[in-house]
Write a protein that binds this DNA or RNA. Structure first.
Lengths: 153, 153
DNA sequence: TATTGTTATACTCTATAACTATA
DNA sequence: TATAGTTATAGAGTATAACAATA
């Protein structure tokens, strides 16, 4: 009967540190005038461009109505481009503009700094060991790589 | 230049697993008709009873107006009792009732099941190693033990 | 006049559902 | 009639600020 199991268990620490990590990342990308959700969309567009809005919305788990306003904002800022679908003219294919590609590179730099700061208490071997354990937990808990609901806003 | 650093880094995994852990705990305590915030308050009252509402609200980081409605709900359910402050009759001292104490024990059982399920992919030594690393990260990032903003609702 | 607790109001965020245009 | 995208509306959750009682 360990008293600490209530408050200092791994589950609680993971939730606490996870919330902290998400909040810290939010502040960092805010310096680029982006929300975490917008940064995530830029990443998807960089990795897998040209799909329809609904395809991206499904991946992110956001309803279409919300996705539209996200794209609106990024399009107004000249980061994302809507191109009419070729055979099916109801849909739009989304692409990063040159400015969007450049901003995405800066998001990458922000992400690396974030990672490094969060793991400052661990040396290289420990970071690898942590990564291995977290990956196993994520796999066992059936979490999809690349998407987490903390990416909101 | 590791490609994976963007998506599968420790920071991202921690945020993803943390959000998952918080959501899973929310579902579990919902079986006791509690939100995570209410469960956290029961725990505070069990550990440190008799303080004023403002004292607890400050600890939880919630504004007083929100705290009042939380206490209202728990008081209506007979889990928490408000006693007029002794010298200063503006304040109320909060205490768990007998029913509140009993329900809090069930929260503890739920928490242990939650911990065990989340760590199912790790053996005992690994759980200890994980706990040690997470504790060091939390300390280095200056996180207060016992409070995380994911405890909302 | 300051402080504890309370109530009222306004604001943000999100999802549901109605709408339009193409098919 | 069905589907991609859009717009309008309503709901939940939250915080800010006004209020009442006691000090």
């Amino acid at each position: 009967m360990e008293h600490r199991s209530q408050m200092g268990g791994n589950a609680f620490l993971l939730a606490q540190i996870g919330a902290h990590a998400a909040a810290a990342f939010r502040e960092r990308v805010a310096t680029l005038d982006l929300t975490p959700a917008q940064a995530g969309l830029l990443r998807m567009l960089a990795a897998d461009p040209g799909l329809s809005q609904q395809a991206y919305a499904r991946r992110l788990g956001t309803p279409p109505s919300r996705f539209v306003t996200m794209v609106d904002t990024l399009e107004e800022r000249g980061l994302v481009e809507r191109r009419r679908g070729e055979p099916d003219r109801r849909s739009y294919a989304l692409h990063l503009t040159e400015a969007g590609t450049q901003l995405f590179r800066r998001v990458g730099a922000v992400g690396r700094a974030h990672e490094d700061d969060l793991c400052a208490a661990l040396d290289d071997d420990e970071r690898k060991a942590l990564h291995e354990m977290l990956s196993r937990i994520a796999a066992q808990q059936m979490l999809t790589p690349g998407v987490h609901p903390g990416y909101r806003g």
